[in-house]
């Protein structure tokens, strides 16, 4: 006697597993990934800040801009050209009544940031305040100014006052 096959039994033949069609998804990814790669910001953009919120006003042209502090005012003067009492380099004033001159090697345009760094580190050890004034002449390049401010902040002077040098142009002769 022959019985019909049970209905509960899977009567289909074993078929190989069907792979999902990934091609449309791949197409989408191949479009999106290069697009995102083009707009991604690879370089880390940092910032150097100046604060002008002083109790007594101030600002770049003011005589007492920045955050108030005690002790002598230490100034880092950045000069780019030679002239009347000027030379390309740095001059640090107000540290124990001394004036530290850091001239560019050979009078060139390359500033000696290494010596400035070591001088600022020495000043930091003997000075209690955390404020420093950066006086900049008009022809100094922006990159040199920012790197000077960077060194000031790096050596424990977070409160940097930006002050343009007072330049007077005579008629000559």
């Amino acid at each position: 006697m022959v019985y019909r096959p049970s209905e509960g039994r899977n009567q289909k033949k074993q078929t190989p597993p069907i792979q999902p069609d990934l091609v449309p998804l791949m197409n989408l990814f191949i479009t999106i990934v290069p697009f995102l790669l083009t707009i991604v910001v690879i370089s880390q953009v940092a910032m150097v800040a100046l604060n002008f919120s002083t109790p007594g006003g101030g600002g770049p042209g003011g005589s007492s801009g920045g955050i108030g502090g005690s002790g002598p005012e230490i100034k880092v003067i950045i000069m780019a050209s030679a002239g009347n009492q000027l030379y390309p380099g740095f001059e640090i004033r107000g540290w124990e009544g001394k004036t530290v001159s850091i001239r560019n090697q050979g009078g060139g345009t390359k500033f000696d940031f290494v010596t400035l760094n070591s001088s600022l580190a020495a000043i930091r050890k003997s000075v209690s305040g955390d404020q420093i004034t950066v006086v900049v002449y008009p022809d100094v390049l922006y990159g040199d100014l920012i790197q000077t401010i960077d060194l000031c902040k790096l050596n424990g002077f977070p409160n940097v006052i930006y002050k343009p040098a007072s330049v007077s142009y005579g008629s000559g002769g």
């Binding site: 880390q44 953009v45 150097v48 800040a49 002008f52 919120s53 770049p60 900049v136 930006y162």
Partner: peptide, 21 residues
């Protein structure tokens, strides 16, 4: 300097300079 003066005059107390780390 001119831009910093203008910014400070227009009551911008915080001025940032963009750099590359």
């Amino acid at each position: 300097t001119q831009l910093v003066k203008i910014g400070a005059g227009a009551t911008f107390a915080n001025i940032y300079f963009s750099t590359l780390q």
